[in-house]
Amino acid sequence: MDCRVKLWEVYNERRCVRTYYGHRQAVRDISFNNLGTQFLSAAYDRYIKLWDTETGECISRFTSRKIPYCAKFHPDEEKQHLFVAGTSDKKIICWDVRSGEIVQEYDRHLGAVNSITFVDENRRFVTTSDDKDIPVDMKYIADPTMHSMPAVMLSPNQKWLACQSMDNKIVIFSALNRFKMNRKKTFSGHMVAGYACTLDFSPDMSYLMSGDADGKCYIWDWKTTKLYKKWKAHDSVCIGVLWHPHESSKVVTAGWDGLLKFWD
């Protein structure tokens, strides 16, 4: 919210390694390239900036004159020069960082684009929006009972999409072929209505984790969908959660109280 991006050390002293200055309004989203040498930051000042992680230099900036709500590098190694961004004017825009030019636009939503997730071995991507539809390469998942889903996470085995639904549930879609909702798998008990609380899978896919509006962190058993554990993580909204990719007992939470917490 202070317009800055901070890089933290997880081990040793857990210090702030570098601060990146350049945005004039709050930063909404960040996406690293595969090597971690560069990252994108999308902010409410209507700019997406490309940074050198090591030096802190802003390499280039991109704008469509609308607020970018999310930005993501193309995951394929040979396409790392491309990134896609979802904007407040309902569009998904693909930029080439080498030329700085827009190479493609998608205009299929009726509301602001909240998230972008690559699926199907990166051949396609899924977007969610306030309009409650989920287009996948021009095919739509649309259900009158669906709520807005501002946060989405692809499972480690690439088979499932976990979507944070604004009716205080996490709903699961198949990430293969027809993208059908798995009505046997719904995770509930937390309060997220009105907040884009992120979610994450444990590396072995045994558990699913989410923050909530009351500052709690929830962990469910993936197979049974039963609540495994919950605790008070923050004094305000627990907006972000992340599982350590190598040490499965450790997680990070981010709260609106301005704190990042590393849990074991």
Score class of each variant (00 low, 15 high):
119 V>F: 06
83 F>P: 06
144 P>D: 12
221 D>Q: 07
247 E>K: 13
197 C>H: 00
92 I>H: 03
9 E>M: 14
26 A>E: 11
229 K>T: 01
213 A>C: 03
30 I>N: 01
109 H>P: 02
26 A>M: 11
86 G>Q: 13
151 A>S: 08
231 W>G: 01
119 V>T: 05
138 M>W: 09
87 T>A: 09
21 Y>C: 15
59 I>Q: 09
46 R>Q: 06
54 E>I: 08
228 Y>Q: 11
106 Y>S: 12
154 L>F: 01
9 E>W: 04
109 H>S: 11
60 S>A: 14
64 S>G: 09
77 E>T: 07
160 W>L: 11
73 F>M: 06
244 H>F: 14
20 Y>F: 15
224 T>A: 05
124 R>I: 01
63 T>H: 05
208 L>K: 12
204 D>Y: 12
117 T>A: 05
141 I>E: 00
194 G>T: 00
145 T>V: 13
36 G>I: 08
233 A>D: 00
121 E>H: 06
82 L>D: 02
183 R>Q: 11
100 G>A: 09
110 L>R: 09
101 E>L: 12
139 K>N: 14
179 F>H: 12
48 I>F: 04
194 G>Y: 01
148 S>Y: 02
19 T>H: 09
91 K>N: 12
19 T>R: 13
105 E>D: 10
189 G>C: 06
44 Y>A: 05
255 G>K: 03
262 F>H: 11
49 K>C: 06
139 K>F: 08
73 F>E: 03
200 D>C: 14
9 E>S: 15
116 I>R: 10
95 W>Y: 11
257 D>W: 04
193 A>W: 04
244 H>K: 10
62 F>T: 05
214 D>Y: 00
23 H>C: 06
35 L>F: 09
98 R>A: 07
209 M>I: 14
199 L>F: 04
259 L>Q: 12
73 F>R: 04
179 F>I: 02
57 E>Y: 02
134 I>F: 03
195 Y>T: 01
214 D>G: 00
237 V>F: 01
57 E>K: 08
187 F>E: 02
165 S>K: 04
192 V>R: 01
140 Y>N: 01
139 K>E: 14
176 L>R: 14
207 Y>L: 10
127 T>V: 06
2 D>W: 05
112 A>H: 10
244 H>L: 13
90 K>A: 03
126 V>E: 04
93 I>F: 14
88 S>L: 14
34 N>V: 04
194 G>N: 07
210 S>G: 11
200 D>Q: 07
203 P>E: 02
53 T>D: 07
117 T>G: 08
124 R>H: 12
235 D>W: 03
